[in-house]
Simulated scan of single mutants.
Amino acid sequence: MTAGGYFISFEGIDGSGKSTQARLLADHLRGTGRDVVLTREPGGSPGAEEIRALVLEGDGDRWSPETELLLFTAARRDHLERTIAPALEAGQIVICDRFADSTRLYQGLARADLRRLVDQLHSLMIGREPDLTILIDMDPATGLGRALARGSGEDRFESFGDSMQQKIRQGFLDLAQEFSARFVTVDGNRQLDAVAADIRQIAESWLP
């Protein structure tokens, strides 16, 4: 448990339902009287939201993997300083839609062989992992279809296609094994309410 509060992250491929499930869990925990901060990455603070537009919009080849890594790390550092750390220090539960595990995959593995560099920058500039990471696992083709159907304009990574989604899905499953002390995997190939019920049960069993 992080000093004072509790830090939960949601991970998964694009279109896996992370954002919806993070919001549903936040609503549930608030309903039980807990003090919850719901946030996201990239973003979650004014400066990080500005960087979000830079990395999620535009052509797929807009940035090199190395430049992306620096941008994501800068956004995460600002997010940590201005949102996450103050909330945890105040004893709140922080629920974050994506965190460093996404960078380990999207910039560290799927786009280039930069995993070692990702971990070095994380150790140097971030130095914090979630207490619990909920991985929503689902069929990559279904997730990609959902993500593209949103039409949000933030579809730069979706533009890399199905092969990227396949690689990211397997990468998340591998991370769940590597960081098994904090990862719990949930089957996302089901109705929204069934997934949400499992996540509520997991969170309640992990929270102090």
Rank of each mutant, 00 (worst) to 15 (best):
R98T: 09
R98V: 08
R98G: 03
F99L: 06
S102H: 08
S102A: 15
T103I: 05
T103G: 01
T103M: 02
T103C: 03
T103V: 06
R104Q: 09
R104M: 13
R104S: 11
L105Q: 04
L105D: 02
L105I: 15
L105C: 03
Y106G: 00
Q107C: 12
Q107Y: 14
G108A: 07
G108F: 13
G108S: 06
L109V: 15
A110V: 15
A110G: 02
R111E: 10
D113M: 06
D113Q: 09
D113F: 09
L114N: 15
R115M: 05
R115F: 08
R116C: 03
R116Q: 13
R116G: 13
L117A: 14
L117I: 13
V118Q: 01
V118Y: 04
V118S: 01
V118A: 01
Q120E: 12
Q120G: 04
Q120C: 02
L121Q: 03
H122R: 11
H122M: 10
H122S: 10
S123K: 09
S123Y: 05
S123M: 04
L124E: 09
L124Q: 08
M125R: 09
I126Q: 00
G127M: 08
G127T: 12
R128I: 15
E129M: 10
D131P: 00
D131R: 01
L132M: 01
L132S: 00
L132A: 00
L132I: 02
T133L: 04
